[in-house]
Amino acid sequence: MKRLVPLTITFIVGFVLIFSVFLPPAEGLDQTFTLYFDIIAVFAFFLGGGNLMRVHINKLRRQKKDWGFSVVTIAGFLFMLAAGLFKIGNPGDIATAVDTQGSLFKTVFDYVINPLQSTMYSLLAFFVASASYRAFRAKNREATLLLIAAFVILLGRTPFGMMVTGWIPDSFSIFQIPNLAIWIMNSPNLAGQRAIIIGIGLGVISMSLRLILGVERSYLGDDNA
């Protein structure tokens, strides 16, 4: 019974949504189901927030390793929740947007969250360098081609590309590095991407059919599918 209910729901909803694409009277159903999902997801926020608090309060109570971080997490969570919920410092009334300029929420967003997120994202620059250093080795013919393509793209994304190859006459402008970079992106890269995307599309169809037909059940923890 525990398996039958979700499998039946998946079967019915899956088929209804597939056919709704082709049947105008059922066309709005996908929107309706998306809204249902959103409503469920909103309630799940409470679940997530609750879990976060439970885990960190437990850690704090038992004075587990690195419990100091839990204090920061709980304090940050409650502070931001209060700033948003009670619209602290919001110059407008209750109807104005939570992130109106001047509100505590917007201030924290601009001066804490914004720089923190940018910092995390900027780690990419460091990791791209270290990964490139390790991965771009001319070990064989394919790897060498990849290496050359990487060089063209890297140079093509800077003004240096044009500075180095700007002298090439316009009739051979394809060999100017920025144009060569665009060609690599637009032709070989695009062909590969499209092939991968077609494969993914078919993979999604196959996976969805397995789920809808109940052939695939391991996401329910059922090993004997």
Binding site: A125, V128, A129, S132, Y133, R134, F136, R137, A138, L147, A150, F151, L154, L155, R157, T158, F160
Partner: peptide, 14 residues
């Protein structure tokens, strides 16, 4: 400048 540094490291690595 970052692109040039990355390219230099790729050369060094090779």
């Amino acid at each position: 400048l970052a692109h040039l540094v990355i390219m230099s490291f790729i050369i060094i690595g090779n």
